[in-house]
Computed example of a mutant assay.
Amino acid sequence: MMRTTARKIALLLVVFALAACARQAPPVTFHADGMPGKLSDWSVVVSDGATLRLNAGVVPYDLNSALFSDYAHKLRTIWMPNGVAAKYDADAAFDFPVGTIISKTFYFPLPDAQWDGKSVARVDPAGSDLVGEKLDLSKVRLIETRLLVRREAGWIALPYVWNDAQTDAKLERIGAIVPLELVDAADARTEISYQVPDQNQCGSCHNTDNLARVLQPIGPKARHLNRDFDYTDGRANQLAKLAQAGYLTGAPQPAAAPRAADWHDAGAPLDARARAYLDINCGHCHSAKGPANTSGLMLDVHAQPGIHMGWCKQPVAAGKGTGDRLFDIKPGDAAGSVVVYRMDSDDPAVMMPEIGRSTAHREAVKLVGDWIDAQQGACN
């Protein structure tokens, strides 16, 4: 009797093991050319409809201050083939090797226990729903995953939109509009048209150098990555973790690397918080080399207070976007500054950034407004 029971237990263990193997996802696949039609063709993130998890070798990361996208939360990851690594740069995006796949999955927490087809929670996007490097899909709604893939000819951007079952995402090269209803803590509801960018729109942001005219990553820079993250094997600095994983070479100790402020951190100086927000949200265009350099308004980390940073600078070719304000930044007067007016608008002919959002970031408008109001000086 005991032998029979033992055999049954052994048989069950074998069955369970085989089932587990059957469910195991294939390894990450780098496609050197072409445009795979499904996100699962890459096998970077894996979903069974109940849980979204990272595949083996895929390293998650976050940013000290992040780009705003209609209050969407984001799961960011990096994967590289064996034997190659990115080269550290103290200022620019790291020099990533051919074969690198950077992913960014956009999702929203659910305000109720069940997805009703449109309602998502409007909560601080800096909060993470990642537990053990997994997302519980009963609590969130996946919208899209964007891939940046480093091929021999350079970077390519691929936008994938998740299906209703949250089991896979389909390539949408022409982008998509996803109707959503943002629900805040007071149950106030705002309808938005969430925009998944097309490939050209991806390029309009990721083309950070007007002369080079090639796509580049925006977030993976030392100052944005220099922070701690809760990995499955414990909390660690992200730069140190990437080096430990063999994904980064030449990085100094984190204490010697630059670090952007977390704009949410009320304990940090107001100037550092506002500058960090403007750097990540505006600086990739409004820089000396960026697509918006003809505006004369520089909002990246290198800009110095003065006319090139908007101080008492009259806007160039902004048209309706000025709101009849005379200066990009009017020290001591946020309400009289073009920058705040455009941040606070959801009019496509006015708002900045001009793509990537359909609603204003209330908290950031207040932050930048407080920063401008605190500035000294007069525009004569």
Rank of each mutant, 00 (worst) to 15 (best):
L12A: 15
L13V: 14
V14A: 14
F16Q: 13
F16E: 11
A17M: 15
C21E: 13
Q24C: 12
V28P: 02
P36L: 00
P36N: 01
G37N: 09
R53Q: 11
L54D: 02
V59E: 07
P60M: 10
N64D: 05
S65H: 03
A66Q: 09
K74C: 12
L75F: 07
M80R: 04
V84L: 06
A92T: 15
V98L: 05
I101N: 03
W115D: 06
V123P: 01
P125I: 02
P125T: 02
A126S: 12
D129I: 00
L135R: 07
V140G: 01
I143H: 03
E144L: 09
L147E: 03
V149K: 00
L158M: 15
Y160V: 08
Y160L: 08
E172N: 14
A176W: 05
L182R: 00
A185T: 15
A188I: 06
R189T: 14
Q201M: 15
H206W: 11
H206Q: 09
T208Q: 07
V214W: 06
I218N: 04
L225T: 08
Q238T: 02
Q238S: 00
L242N: 10
A243N: 02
Q244E: 15
G250P: 00
R259D: 11
R259G: 08
A260Y: 04
A260C: 09
A260G: 11
W263S: 15
A274C: 05
A276R: 02
A276I: 02
D279A: 02
N281V: 11
H284Q: 14
H284V: 13
C285Q: 01
K289T: 15
D300N: 08
V301T: 12
A303H: 11
Q304R: 11
P305M: 03
G306W: 09
I307W: 10
V316H: 13
G319H: 01
G321H: 01
G323P: 00
D328I: 14
D333C: 07
A335G: 10
G336I: 01
V340P: 02
Y341I: 04
S345F: 05
D347P: 03
P353M: 02
E354R: 14
R357V: 06
V365A: 12
A374N: 08
Q375H: 09
Q376P: 03
